[in-house]
Every structure is written in C-alpha cells, then in structure tokens.
Amino acid sequence: MVATALTLVTALSGCSLLGGSDEESEPQSGGNGKLETTTLNISIMKTTDLAPFHLAMQEGFFEDEGLEVKFVDAPSGGESVNKLISGEADISYSSYTPFFLAESRKAGQAKGGVKIVADAASAGPNSCMVVALPNSSVKTVQDMAGKRVAVTATGTISDLLTMSTLKTKGVDYKSIQWVKTPFPATADALKAGNVDAAFVTEPFLSQTQTVAGALPIFDTATGPTADMPVAGWGSTGDFVKKNPNTIAAFQRAMQKGTDLALSDRTLVEPLLVKFSGVDENIAKVATLLTFQSKLDATRIQRVPDLMKDFAVITEELDVSKMIVPTAPLT
C-alpha cells in the first residue's frame, strides 16, 4: 500500500469483475456527463490497501457509475506501471515510487506522462515496521548501522522510509546492506539468518511475528515520515484527457469504497482473506495502512521530495501538475 513495498507476489486469476450490465453497449452517464468508455482495464496487486477497491466492486459502486471493470494482475508496482505505459491497463495501482520514477525518466511521455487519479493509502502508526528475531544483533534502531536488511527492492518506499528514520536517529543509513527479499519470503530469510532485520508491512508484519517469532524494532512511519503517502492509482495524460467523465466516475466509486472501508473494519477483514491471501486470524489483528482516496498535492509531494533527498530521482517533480482533481460525490 507499499511499492513494490506493499506487494504480495502472488497472482490473481486474471479474471474480470463486471461492474455494468452486459446489455449496455453505449457509454452512459457517470453522474457528471456521458462516459467516454464504460470499460476500464485496471492493473492491481494482492495488497491489503486494495480493500476499498474490492469493497467498491462488491457493493456495486462501479456499476452504479456505469462502469465495467476488468482487472489484470501485476507482480510489483513497477510492473503495474509498466502495464499502464504499455497500454495494457487504463488505470494502475502501485506504490507511489514507480509512478514518480516513470515520470522522472519520461517513460510515459509519448502518452502524455503519468497522472495520479486517486490516492490509496498512507503509512499509519505501526503499519510499516522494521523487525528482527530475538537472537539478532539488532535490538534497537541504533544497532542498524552496517546490518543486512531485507527490503522488497531499493529505491522503494521500503528502503526510503527506513533510511529516513535512520537519518533522523543519527544512524549511518549509507552503511546498510540491502537484501532484496519479496515480502512472502521475509520470514524465511529471517529464520535462515540471511538478514539481520527486515522492513515489513501487514500482513507480513503479523506473519513474521507468528511464523518466525520476529519482534518489532522500530516504526518507520514516525517523525518526518508520519502519515507518508505510500500508494495510489495512476493513468496516462492521454487517457485522462480523452476520458474525463470516465475518470471522474472511477474516482467517485473509489471514494465511496474508501469511505465505507473506513467506516466499518468488519467489512474489510473478509476481503483481506479473499483477495490478499491473509489468514483469517491475521486479518482480525493486522494493523492496516490508512485508506485514502481524495488527492492532496501537498501531501503527496512528500514522496518525490523524499526520493530526491535519497537520490532515487535526480530532478524535482511538481506533483500538482500530475494530479487529476478529485471529482465530487454526487
């Protein structure tokens, strides 16, 4: 909910879920005008912060907007953004870093660049943690210098949040030995002694504690990185320009799904089990990311700024030029 940082590398079925009637062949009103297209191809992943999307599907919010949603699976945030750039997806879910990496490298320039159409999640307290086993040499944040630390990949929310926290605490973050480890393999990497500590989010925070006996060492979403935006939904400039009413309909459906998810956690837990591969017991206790939907340029600007601070990108990006204003609910 994070980058590749928040991805479970397991495939969905590649099936589609219909949000509109099979009898509807012509674009129709999404509330603020005639839809330019009623079918959306969306790239998603098995992350816990996609619960609002699945809730919107379940409750018929996309159908209410006249949309038929077909989703395709991506194994990582980077691959999800690649599907967007290649035209395989009209809208993609990803942690924010791949969107900004693509924009900084002008990967989508031929299609009008990358646009952010909806927020998804931010890092709430105790949702993005560094953990270690009881026999590890890492007992506190001050022990991290020079250690082997599991992250999904470098240049992602995983290592950025960790480095920012270490820098704030006066720890030499440049000495860290980053070990690329998919979240599902983190518990095994800890037990095998391949890493001294690991960055994890839910459900893997609970999984590493249950399976490997890991202990939380420090929260990476505090101080300068408190409530850091971690994931969102993107499209291309060309698609947004050609389909403004369709994008607005998507935004309204996602806002309704997000509002409902925030209002009743018991609606979210079964979706974590069904779509994110989360054990039922873990779903009940997992510390979830903070669901978001409405876009705030100032808040999301923190992500590319952090990426530039740690040389993941070399130029400044103006998020306000990438954001598609959130359509009001009707």
Rank of each mutant, 00 (worst) to 15 (best):
M1A: 15
T4M: 09
A5T: 13
L6S: 15
A11T: 13
L12N: 14
S13R: 15
G14V: 08
L17V: 13
G20L: 15
E26F: 12
G30P: 00
G30E: 08
T37L: 03
T38N: 14
N41W: 14
M45F: 14
T48A: 11
P52M: 10
Q58L: 06
E59P: 00
E59H: 00
F61P: 07
F62L: 04
D64K: 09
G66L: 07
V69K: 04
P75R: 00
P75E: 02
S76Y: 03
E79Y: 10
S86I: 13
E88I: 11
A89E: 05
A89M: 08
S95A: 15
Y96P: 01
T97C: 01
P98E: 02
F99G: 03
F99L: 11
L101F: 09
A102T: 08
E103C: 01
E103I: 06
R105Q: 15
R105Y: 12
K106C: 09
A110N: 12
A110Y: 06
K111R: 15
K111T: 15
G113Y: 04
A132C: 05
L133I: 04
P134Y: 11
K139M: 14
A145M: 05
R148T: 11
V149D: 00
D159C: 05
M163A: 01
L166E: 00
G170N: 11
G170I: 13
D172H: 03
I176G: 02
T181G: 07
F183L: 15
T186W: 04
A189L: 10
F199A: 07
F199K: 01
V200N: 10
V200M: 13
V200H: 06
T201P: 09
L205N: 14
S206G: 10
T208V: 12
Q209K: 10
G213P: 11
P216H: 06
F218C: 06
A221E: 03
T222E: 13
P224Q: 03
T225L: 01
P229I: 03
V230A: 08
G232M: 03
S235V: 08
S235P: 09
G237W: 02
D238C: 09
K242V: 07
I247Q: 02
A253M: 06
M254F: 06
G257N: 02
A261I: 07
R265K: 15
L267V: 06
E269P: 06
A286W: 08
T287F: 08
S293K: 04
R299P: 01
R299D: 12
R299W: 11
R302P: 02
V303H: 00
D309W: 08
F310S: 03
I313E: 03
E315M: 13
V319S: 04
M322K: 00
P325I: 10
A327Y: 06
P328C: 10
L329W: 10
